[in-house]
Amino acid sequence: MVVYHIPTINWLREIADLLIRAHDSALIVIDMQERLVPAMQAPARTIRNTRLLLKAAARTGVPALLTEQYPQGLGQTVPEIRKAAGDNAILPKMHFSCMEDQGFAGAFRSLGRRQAILTGMEAHICVVQTAASLVEEGFDVFVVSDATASRTIESEQACLARLSAGGVSVVTTEMVIFEWLGRAGSDAFREMLPMIK
């Protein structure tokens, strides 16, 4: 005998809460800096996907914040990301968790968004600690797995497993972009589609 699960209203609400909404989102790009990027696993993939996310964010009205960990030692944000960031703020920090830095935390809270979309490096240090701080404060957190990197694949995988077990949604670049777009046929969809293919 086959038993079918009939969704309850609460279950449907939980599924709806999983969707990434452009009007609820802020994109956070963590520490994609000159002296960090070359040491990462798949740096070209991480840069390419973060650039796509920055372009999609600009096209769909999603604000972005970028950070630099100790820029005097680790250098500035790599040129490809800095150019894609446009006028979005790039904030220096010393804490591993962005939310422990008063400048960043104030800038993020002032956006009034409840969903934080995280990319950057290193996954198992600054990304995971920022995600944990945001979850503690009650934000919905999404970490973009193919726009996030560590120096070793083991650290990257452990980070994503830990985040997922802790209630953070692990997503991909295309998931974020298509959820921001919401539908086909719009000007934003037509503009983004050639970049994604």
Rank of each mutant, 00 (worst) to 15 (best):
residue 136 E to Q: 09
residue 106 G to R: 07
residue 85 A to T: 09
residue 135 V to P: 00
residue 107 A to R: 13
residue 116 A to G: 13
residue 113 R to S: 09
residue 95 H to W: 15
residue 96 F to N: 11
residue 110 S to H: 02
residue 113 R to E: 01
residue 118 L to V: 05
residue 124 H to A: 14
residue 98 C to G: 12
residue 114 R to Y: 06
residue 127 V to Y: 03
residue 121 M to N: 11
residue 111 L to Y: 03
residue 121 M to E: 15
residue 123 A to E: 15
residue 129 Q to T: 13
residue 115 Q to I: 04
residue 117 I to V: 12
residue 137 E to K: 11
residue 111 L to F: 11
residue 111 L to W: 14
residue 87 D to K: 09
residue 112 G to R: 11
residue 114 R to I: 06
residue 132 A to V: 00
residue 132 A to W: 08
residue 107 A to D: 14
residue 88 N to K: 08
residue 137 E to R: 13
residue 130 T to V: 01
residue 94 M to R: 11
residue 97 S to I: 15
residue 104 F to P: 05
residue 128 V to E: 09
residue 89 A to N: 05
residue 131 A to G: 00
residue 107 A to N: 08
residue 136 E to D: 02
residue 124 H to L: 12
residue 119 T to Y: 01
residue 99 M to N: 02
residue 129 Q to N: 04
residue 130 T to D: 06
residue 92 P to M: 04
residue 102 Q to A: 12
residue 108 F to G: 00
residue 100 E to Y: 14
residue 88 N to S: 14
residue 114 R to F: 04
residue 108 F to C: 01
residue 133 S to V: 04
residue 97 S to D: 15
residue 89 A to C: 04
residue 98 C to Y: 01
residue 85 A to C: 08
residue 90 I to C: 03
residue 96 F to I: 14
residue 131 A to P: 03
residue 122 E to I: 15
residue 99 M to Q: 13
residue 103 G to L: 06
residue 106 G to M: 02
residue 137 E to V: 08
residue 112 G to H: 10
residue 128 V to N: 02
residue 115 Q to N: 07
residue 132 A to S: 12
residue 90 I to T: 10
residue 99 M to T: 06
residue 99 M to H: 13
residue 96 F to A: 13
residue 102 Q to K: 12
residue 104 F to A: 09
residue 98 C to T: 01
residue 113 R to G: 09
residue 137 E to A: 08
residue 97 S to K: 13
residue 97 S to L: 13
residue 89 A to K: 07
residue 85 A to I: 07
residue 129 Q to Y: 04
residue 87 D to F: 01
residue 118 L to Q: 01
residue 103 G to Y: 05
residue 128 V to R: 00
residue 133 S to T: 09
residue 104 F to C: 10
residue 100 E to F: 14
residue 119 T to S: 04
residue 137 E to G: 09
residue 86 G to V: 10
residue 128 V to M: 02
